[in-house]
Amino acid sequence: MDIKYLSGIVPQENNLDLELSVLNNLLIYARFYGIKKNDALPRIEYLLDFMELTEKKDSKIRTLSGGMQRRLIIARALINKPKLLILDEPTTGLDPQVRQLIWDKMRQLKNDGVTILLCTHYMDEAYQLSDSLIIMHNGKKVLEGNPISLVKDNIEPWVMEVNTPDKMADTRLQGAQRIERTYSRMMIYADHIDELNQAAKGLEDRDYMLRQSNLEDLFLKTTGRNLNE
C-alpha cells in the first residue's frame, strides 16, 4: 500500500464516476489518499490548469470528450503528487492535438523528477518520451535500451517504402541490406541513402517514400509482421 500511496495510475480504460462533476471526481479521489478538502482544492485547481481543464470544472463527466476524460484521469493520477506515474496506453484513440498536449505534460513531469512508466503500442510515443524502453513480445523481453541508440544499433538507418513493387526491378535492389515484402508493398532497408535514391530512379513520387527508419521499423523487425493475437 505504501507503494500505491506514492504512485499514480492511468488505466487503459477510463473509469471516472460518470454521474459526478469533474471537481467532485477529483475531490473524492483526493479523499482516498486522505487529503482533506482544504488541501485538495488548491491542488485540484493547479492540476486542472496543468491539464487545461479549468473551464470544465463543474461539468459532468458524461459531457466531456474522450480527450478531456483522458486528461482528467491523468490529473486524477497526479493528485497525490506521485513519485511514480504509471500510464497504460494514455493516448490511444485521441486526436493529434491532445496527444501532443499529453506528451508535453509528460515531459514536464519527467523534468520535475517524476518517474514515468509508460505502456504503449505507439512507437512514436515511446520514442518521444522514454529514456529507456523495453520491447516486449509474447510476454518476453526482446530489446532494451535507449530508443535512439536502439534504432541506431539494430536497424539500417534508411528505408524506402515502395507502393508499387511490380515496377521495382530486382537489379536495382543490389544496394539494399534487407527487403521486407507484404501483399501490396515492399520495404527496402539500406545503410546509405544514395543506394535507395539509386533504386528509386524511374519511380514516380506516389510510388515510394524514402525516410529514416524508426522505432516502429525496429519493432516490426524484432517481433515480426505476423499478427500476434
Binding site: D2, G34, Y46
Partner: peptide, 21 residues
C-alpha cells in the same frame, strides 16, 4: 513536483483504515 505548487501539506503516510473505509 512544481515550484508553483500551492499544496500546504500532503501527509507522507497512507491514510488510516477508518479514513479509507
Amino acid at each position: 513536483m512544481n515550484s508553483t505548487l500551492t499544496v500546504r501539506k500532503i501527509k507522507s503516510h497512507p491514510p488510516s483504515l477508518v479514513s479509507r473505509v
